[in-house]
Simulated scan of single mutants.
Amino acid sequence: MGVQVARFHVQTGPEPLFARVRQVFTGPRQLRLHGSHLRERAGGRDAPLDDLKTFEPDAWELMLIEARTDTGRFVSTTWRRSYPDADWWVVVGFRDTVRTLYQASPGKSGRGDGIVIGGPLWDLANEVNAKLITDG
């Protein structure tokens, strides 16, 4: 059985969770692009793989975060970027590995079912990440 996660959206927070991810994702990062799911999704399309080799977080919009339900710490992040021909979403997981990359319609917001908007998991992510930001 894997780690249980909860999904949070940028519009509904908690803000300290998103601030913590932005604190960790400062400056360019070298992402790992070796997953078979990534090759499946990106293959045959004009996927922006070059923009992922050296990932510039400021060029992408942070949309979703998955955090552990036992610790409140993030385990994956989802980012969106608009290009002239399409919007692309990328999910970055453990050790900066791209879990998936997909093309989405311009109106996609990521606010589907399963987004935590309050309650004990929201409170945990809020408290833990506020402390992490304060403690560095």
Results as ranks from 00 to 15, higher is better:
M1Q: 14
M1V: 15
G2S: 13
Q4R: 12
V5T: 12
A6V: 08
R7Y: 13
T12P: 02
T12R: 13
P14E: 04
P16W: 11
L17V: 12
R20D: 06
R20M: 15
Q23S: 12
P28I: 15
L31G: 09
L31W: 03
L33W: 12
G35C: 03
S36W: 14
R39S: 05
E40H: 14
R41M: 14
G44K: 02
P48N: 09
D50P: 00
D51G: 02
D51N: 12
L52M: 08
K53A: 15
K53F: 13
D58N: 15
D58E: 15
W60Q: 03
L62V: 04
M63E: 10
L64S: 06
L64A: 05
E66L: 13
A67R: 02
A67W: 01
G72V: 09
R73C: 08
F74H: 06
F74N: 01
F74D: 08
V75S: 00
T77Y: 01
T78N: 00
T78M: 08
P84Q: 09
D87V: 07
W89C: 07
V90F: 00
V92C: 05
V92M: 09
F94T: 06
D96K: 07
Y102W: 07
Q103I: 00
G107Q: 11
S109E: 13
G112Y: 13
D113C: 06
I115Y: 06
I115R: 01
V116L: 06
G118Y: 08
G119T: 02
L121A: 02
L121G: 00
W122N: 04
E127D: 15
N129A: 10
N129P: 08
A130V: 02
L132W: 03
G136E: 02
